[in-house]
């Protein structure tokens, strides 16, 4: 869960450090590792399953994509060094995990077929199609937004303000005018707009927190969000 502190976007007065959240968790010992692993599994399971399916990685080892990704998490995340290695990679966490999944599948295939028949997993990475990459990025965007929504709703519910989410949703997703929403919620249109605006800010903070956990600097978040929209367009059309 993103806290208000880690989700906010202050102007850094010194060079910003990537991946602050995960490096902080890893410095906390076993309890922190559990938190970091929990975040990785809940955020990246679905995108990696989508990627595995889109690229047909599972067909070469005759496995279920979900089980393969869960197996990948189980073997890699139990190693305390795995996420530490990512910190120095310069990659987004999602890209690091995607590459890691390739290596994992390669290992499974090697175990199945023996060393002689194993192909070089780096060649497989190089041959990754744009379509499967786009599907992965789209699944990641949906997962990140869903997580941002859940965080926001949970936060509102804790404060007894769940109705504010409904106002936000009715306007921005269902397309109702504030005057209609206001009537339903017994308030003025200006109040409904104000509450919806506040919720949008909370979703934004939650999403930016998730992107920062993935390795984006604050200065890179605008580009990340624009890229999310582009990859969603391709599906919408």
């Amino acid at each position: 869960m993103a806290t208000a502190t880690e989700s906010s976007s202050p102007t850094p007065s010194f060079p910003e450090t990537r991946t602050l959240w995960i490096s902080d968790r890893l410095s906390e010992g076993e309890a922190g590792l559990i938190l970091a692993n929990g975040h990785v599994m809940s955020s990246y399971l679905q995108p990696l399953v989508t990627y595995c399916r889109a690229l047909g990685l599972h067909t070469s080892i005759r496995g279920d994509p979900q089980e393969i990704v869960q197996g990948f998490f189980a073997t890699r995340l139990s190693n305390t060094e795995y996420l530490k290695s990512w910190l120095g990679s310069g990659l987004r966490l999602r890209q690091w995990l995607r590459n890691g999944l390739h290596h994992f599948v390669h290992e499974l295939r090697r175990d199945d077929a023996g060393q002689a028949n194993a192909t070089d997993s780096l060649d497989e990475i190089a041959s990754t199609t744009k379509r499967s990459e786009d599907e992965f990025e789209r699944a990641w965007a949906l997962s990140a937004l869903e997580q941002a929504m859940k965080e926001t709703i949970a936060n509102l519910e804790r404060r007894g303000k769940r109705a504010e989410w409904d106002i936000f949703w009715m306007h921005h997703v269902d397309g109702h005018a504030y005057s209609v929403i206001a009537e339903r919620h017994q308030m003025t249109a200006a109040q409904a707009a104000q509450r919806s605006f506040a919720v949008a800010g909370q979703v934004r903070n939650a999403l930016y927190g998730i992107l920062r956990k993935d390795g984006a600097l604050t200065s890179e978040i605008g580009v990340e969000v624009a890229a999310m929209m582009e990859v969603l367009h391709e599906h919408g059309s």
Binding site: L142, M149, M228
Partner: peptide, 15 residues
Amino acid sequence: TVTVPMAMQLICAIL
């Protein structure tokens, strides 16, 4: 589950 159209609307709301 968040759908693609919902995601587009959410990003517009965020921006």
